[in-house]
Each structure stands twice: as C-alpha cells, then as structure tokens.
Write a protein that binds this DNA or RNA. Structure first.
Length: 261
DNA sequence: ATGACGGAAGTTTTCCGA
C-alpha cells in the first residue's frame, strides 16, 4: 500500500498535476494540503473519475486539507479538542475493515501552521496548535495503534533537512522550539519514515519559487510522514518524488511517499 | 537592501506563504 502527502498550493491550479501524478505513482491514499477551496467547490467528480473517494475540509483562499483513497474513508474528524479554529488544517479518517478494528489504518493529515517568524504572534499560535495536536494524537493512538500522521509540518526536523543550516539557524521552520514540538510527537511513538531508510542530507520536499531555488537545490524537507510503532514494522520504503516539482507551473512542494507491507 | 515568485481576492494593490 502506497500512502502519499502533497502540498499542492491550490488544488484549482494543480488538478492537472494531481491527475498526471496519480496515474503515474498510483498511490492508494493521498493527503493534500493547501487546497484553498471551499467544500462546495471541491472537485469530487474529477477525483472520482481518477478512481478515488475523498474527504475534505477547506476554506476560501487559505489552508484546506483533503484525503483521497481507493477505499472508503470513515470516521472523519476535522476539529479537535481545544482548537476552535476556523483554519482548515486537520483531517483524520480511517480505512480498513470496520469488523477488524485492530487492522484499521488511521490517517491524520496535517497542514501545520507556518508561524511567520520566531517570536511572532503566529509563532506562539503555531506552538499552541502543535501542543493541541499532540494531545489529540496521543488520544487517537489509544484507539488506533496503526496510525500514519502526514502532511506539511512546516518544520525541518534537523540540519540535514536544510540547505543552509547557518542561514536558517533558529529561524522559522528550524527553531529549537519547533523542533522540540516535533520531538514531542516522536515521543508518542511516531517516527519520521524517511529517516528509517535515508540518512543523507540535501534531500528536500520544498523549494522557494524565487531565486531559482529548485534548480540550485536550495530547499527544506518539511513534508513528513510519521508512522506509529505498530506501522513502523510494515514500512518498506519512504521516498520523495521530485519529478512534479520540475513540471510547468509546479507547486513549490513535491510529493512524499511511504510504501507499507 | 527583507527584494524575488506564485496564488488569491479583486482591482491596479494587498496579504500570505516557507
């Protein structure tokens, strides 16, 4: 089973890219972020034509998350305790046989708050948001041992994930406070699948549109797929598909994937 | 020098992203 995450930076603009990529990569489940679409405008029919059912939680202009799956998505959650948040950034759903709860896979799609700059109001909000999400994930893990938490985390886990660690030192996406918040998710038994297989630096999932950053590989790895202890043993590969970032009118993020046994 | 590039709203410019 292939599970993927992709920040599409407007599904309206990127629907043709998604179409092409789904046909080529053939994932079973895809988490999308920054759909920037109100629910009434979600392209349910176009996605169905590609062979996927969908769940979505969106809003105009900003944010917006969606899950696409070849199987039915059940027990959808879009809001969590403690966050009365109009920003659509969270989408949880379950796949698998309802009669066999222990074999169900819980999928939690996150578009983590950007945070703007260290010390800003938005930064404080990011840390608070992450703390609430951690509590939610802890509760979810009690119910669903097989869990995958994926999305745009807006945190580069360590300096291997940053093209210029000196320039980014204690900057937004790389600060110790953000990395500590990510470490708290790891402490729940949620592992960065990419680092189960790959230790090299210089492998990124996002490149700025400006300054020819992609051509020069000036990027960050901020799109992550975390797997629970129970899922870790089923994890066969974790990769970044850089191809869609090369396409005309690309998203600034490229898809990341895991393959589960 | 805080620029650039791209998307969205909506109108000639602003906000936001990472």
């Amino acid at each position: 089973m292939k599970v993927a995450s992709w920040n599409v930076n407007s599904l309206n603009v990127r629907l043709p890219h998604l179409n092409t990529w789904l046909a080529a990569a053939m994932p079973d489940i895809v988490a999308l972020q920054e759909t920037k679409l109100e629910d009434g405008k979600f392209p349910v029919e176009a996605i169905a034509a590609l062979g996927y059912q969908c769940a979505f939680s969106g809003q105009k202009t900003y944010n917006g998350v969606a899950l696409l799956a070849r199987q039915p998505l059940r027990d959808v959650v879009t809001d969590i305790p403690g966050l009365t948040d109009p920003q659509r950034r969270i989408l949880a759903a379950t796949v698998g046989d309802p009669a066999a709860p222990s074999q169900q896979l819980r999928i939690i799609n996150l578009y983590v708050v950007n945070g703007q700059s260290v010390g800003s109001e938005k930064f404080a909000y990011k840390l608070d948001w992450l703390a609430k999400v951690r509590d939610f994930l802890a509760a979810e893990l009690q119910r669903y041992p097989q869990m995958i938490v994926l999305g745009d985390f807006n945190i580069a886990p360590d300096d291997r994930d940053v093209h210029d660690p000196a320039a980014w030192h204690e900057q937004i996406l790389c600060s110790s406070a953000e990395r500590a918040a990510l470490a708290q998710l790891h402490a729940l038994g949620l592992h960065d699948s990419f680092r189960l297989f790959e230790q090299e630096p210089g492998l990124y999932s996002w490149w700025d549109y400006r300054m020819g950053a992609h051509r020069r590989n000036l990027g960050l790895r901020i799109d992550l797929i975390l797997v629970s202890d129970a899922l870790r043993a089923r994890c066969r590969s974790a990769t970044i598909d850089r191809e869609p970032r090369r396409w005309e009118r690309a998203s600034d993020h490229t898809p990341v994937l895991v393959e589960l046994a």
